[in-house]
Nucleic acid binder design. Sequence first.
DNA 1: ATGTACAAGATTTTT
DNA 2: TCTTGTACAT
Length: 852
Amino acid sequence: MTELNKLPRHDLPDHQPMAGGIAARARAAAAPPYLTALNPEQREAVETLDGPVLVLAGAGTGKTRVLTSRIAHILSTGRARPHEILSVTFTNKAAREMKHRLGQMLGHAVEGMPWLGTFHSIGGRILRVHAELVQLKSNFTVLDVDDQVRLLKQLLQADGIDDKRWPARMLAGLIDGWKNRGLTPSQVPSGEAAVFGNGRGGKLYTAYQERLKTLNAADFGDLLLENIRLFRENPDVLRGYQNRFKYILVDEYQDTNVAQYLWLRLLSQMATSTPPPSPPAGEGAEPRSGEAGEGLLSASDDPSPGSLRSPPSPARGEGSSASIETLRQKNICCVGDDDQSIYGWRGAEVDNILRFDHDFPGAKIIRLERNYRSTGHILAAASHLIAHNESRLGKTLRTEDVEGEKVTVTGAWDSEEEARAIGEEIEQLQRAGDKLNEVAILVRASFQMREFEDRFVTLGLPYRVIGGPRFYERAEIRDALAYLRVINSPADDLAFERIVNVPKRGIGDATVQLLYDHARKQRMSLAAAARAIADTDELKPKPRGTLRGLMDNFDRWRMQSQAMPHTELAEIVLDESGYTEMWQKDRSADAAGRLENLKELVRSMEEFENLQGFLEHISLVMDRDGGPEEDAVSLMTLHSAKGLEFDNVFLPGWEEGLFPHQRALDEQGRAGLEEERRLAHVGITRARKRAKLYFATNRRIHGTWSTTVPSRFLDELPTDNVEITESKGGSGWGGSSGYGASRFDNLEAFGSSYSTPGWQRAQANRSRGGFNEAGTPYGANGGSRARRAPLTIEGELIAKSTGTTSEYSLGDRVFHQKFGYGRIVKVDGNKLTIAFDKAGEKKVVDSFIQRA
DNA sequence: ATGTACAAGATTTTT
DNA sequence: TCTTGTACAT
């Protein structure tokens, strides 16, 4: 308890004024300031340090503050040292915010907290340390979505699957989903594995994993899945981490998926729970991820078998088995809000939070229900709306703030008028002295943004789009990174493929396909294949020359990278490859900006010690700090608004089909509707002072105008807290008649149609697969393959000279697709010289021939 | 190998 | 409506 006490008052978060006066000061002398600033429920959440704790924190109840204070408290009571605390958040943004707040509270002590980050970044770190145990090299590359899809495209092509009917994106989504649910290839339910027909989905998943190993790569899902496998197969490693982390803190627990849950469970050594009671969904409900997680567990070695799988003991101990006693119940603290779970569509499992006390017997559940953010009307409206959800734990948020302004609902003739009306209201706020930084427009789908952008441009109103394409996702940055990646790890196929013809050098699809065929057959990387083929007659002289030139360039750069600072290397590479030149010649409007971005990239490399370190950072963080912000309206989707707050929040597009989104309804049924409602709840609760909802009667969807109907969510708002206003867009309509007649147009008239959701059909079509036969553990098929496929960089060298001896010998009669029949006259490793009957003597690689 | 013409399809998004 | 990707011609 040292520097914590010296905390200056202004470091305390601002929306929750400290109780003033002498009494408060007296208390402050007794307790450290990070505790006195808390209300009783928050304080309980901070001070309950022993055993598992679930903090059910509603919107705006200060959950981040609870987490930071809790860490401060752990440290100041000397229960753990900074490096013994594991704190995971859901996004980088949240991790940064957390670090920032802790920095204010703890000063430089934060530097000693290495385990503060996201699930994936921490999983990635653990994996790098133990890479050899999962058959990777520690310099493995982490594929992003784009790489992932391109790799899958190759696999599909090799398998003769039409990308039209079964796009690689779809397969990527499937594999992602499986990984989120903690399923290895052998555990994918057979029904789901059959998606491409004939169990092909599962086979492709296996092939994909094999290819990743060959390339010494992992995708984001692997960061956790491989981690789980690592822990399972190496109890000593697991034990090490279990001992290391004395306290585990989890933010946004409602958004954790099964893989994250399993990872946490292993680390915290919790008792195994039985699956939640099967949902009352009726006929043939699809297997939900909760069960899938159990499948994973039972299929492999649960560290604590038997006794714990029997019904969960609600109370700890209870005279039952000693094994529970011996279980170290970790001090895990999860913070979340079931009403803010909005990522179900990508595998988040609300059940995780709903069954917390099953997983952690004796868990203490603390509710934070005092909202410090919103005024009375706003909170009441949001609460009333969310109360329509059936599956929730239920919290009653309260505020001691003033009633404030009512939530407004405004109808507009069309989306254009909606934009105009909002634009005008914002200008009015601006005139009244409100900061634009305190204004946000939250849309359901990103296509809605365009109209607002157009409007703001004409008005000259400064705005910023949040969650647009990020820095590291820009094409030029990814290209530049690809060059660096190939230098850093030559086996990085995806990077190689990306830049092999950028700038254009005349190496087209045909050449790449040839390389790919060879690489796949030989189980080597594309770069290695390029090297092997560059010496043969498979290619025409021109592409062969360019290819060899490119490989030589890479060799040289790789050599230089040892000798010079990596920033300098980057400049040289971009220059000599002709990449900079390409953009300089480009006459389009954004070329200059791209060049600027490239410079920015080189600048940002300076912070890192070497290329390797920089690339590692990129693959895990892929994020950029926004510079200082000038005063501007924020425009973003509801999803990216989670965790933010603004004085004034505009919520356009509350129409059936858009919000709730039709697709959510079709695909997820009631669950989808409830998630949409949670999204609506999140939207409204972002507002501190004013929440303004809009709906348009006509909206252009994909170019064609269609008439829309106000969202059912509008009808679910409490009348007392809502005011129905007229559109100020002033384009004739909107005044006297129409929507004003009843509450929102003729809502009642079609209200009954809600009850016939199309989702039942959708759900019936789905497979109700059980699990595959308890299968081979993950990676078991790696053994047969490893012999011929040297994993990484070494593979290059082997392919280049000898090592792999050809299975062909002198004099063999062979056949070649292009050159026809011939006889082998020389063998050099896997390179053969063949006298062809028609084509004469050619050098080829053995993977292109077969015995005649 | 590359440029152009047309068709299809178009939530939410982090790592 | 507009973007993206694929088929076709150069």
